[in-house]
């Protein structure tokens, strides 16, 4: 079932249209990858979906109901969770306190910690350390753990792999796949495909604000991306 659906979404920055009618769906239990070069509008697409950037046209449907223009807090309560680019953690708080900050969402500290440490055992080992001293991969795990504390229906991930070693990224995406298998609709934005293609069920390529390609991640996608990123000398 399509939990999140964008229909003909248009959006602008500074009066310049950056999304020219984007159609995109994210289904429960699936990982959908949104790829494309810098400036294609990927982050804007996620921000429109999370309600923090207005759509100038088109519709955003959440569970089949129109959620266009809804307040970001209402969307958050409805289960849309955006993990923004960079690390979504408080660097000067310990891991434990980072998790503690999620107790406003109605779950107790013990429940949140138990779930987080079960999923990411490495966090249990560094529970008393400041998040800022963790490695990049551990910080992303903590961000994911924080995101999952709210029991999201839709998880929007922006450039999870940025600045991380391939092995770390691969492990993170195994977790993302696991999260999806539990029924969450995951929409992942990545500039570089390497990281996410192993776990994505569906992929779309965004170029200059339009979906240029969509389908299963296979050799056709690789050819498309190769031409797009590396081109050929004119």
């Amino acid at each position: 079932m399509n939990v999140l659906e964008l229909r003909g979404v248009r959006a602008a920055h500074d009066g310049i249209t950056v999304l020219h009618g984007v159609d995109l769906t994210a289904a429960a239990g699936r990982v959908t990858a949104l790829l494309g070069p810098n400036g294609a509008g990927k982050t804007t697409t996620l921000r429109v979906a999370a309600g923090v950037h207005p759509a100038s046209g088109g519709r955003v449907l959440l569970g089949g109901r129109d959620a266009t223009g809804a307040d970001p807090r209402a969307l958050a309560r409805a289960g849309v969770r955006l993990i923004p680019e960079g690390r979504g953690v408080f660097p000067n708080l310990t891991v434990r306190d980072n998790l503690l900050m999620m107790t406003r969402t109605g779950r107790t500290r013990e429940e949140i910690e138990e779930a987080a440490f079960a999923r990411f055992p490495v966090l249990a080992r560094c529970a008393a350390r400041h998040a800022g001293t963790l490695s990049g991969g551990e910080q992303q795990m903590l961000a994911l753990a924080r995101g999952l504390a709210t029991d999201p229906a839709v998880l929007l991930l922006d450039e999870l792999s940025m600045g991380l070693a391939p092995l770390v990224v691969a492990r993170l995406y195994e977790q993302v796949a696991e999260i999806a298998r539990q029924g969450v609709a995951v929409l992942v934005v990545e500039q570089f495909a390497a990281a996410v293609l192993g776990v994505a069920d569906r992929a779309a390529v965004l170029v200059r604000g339009r979906v240029a390609w969509r389908g299963r991640p296979d050799d056709g996608l690789r050819a498309e991306l190769s031409a797009l990123y590396l081109g050929s000398p004119r």
Binding site: F192, A193, A194, A195, L197, G198, R222, L225, S226, Y229, L230, G231, S232, P233
Partner: peptide
Amino acid sequence: AQVSRDAAVLAAYLGDA
């Protein structure tokens, strides 16, 4: 031209499949 055919570059951008 060389770079766009380089295997390591393709892997970095597209992942090794």
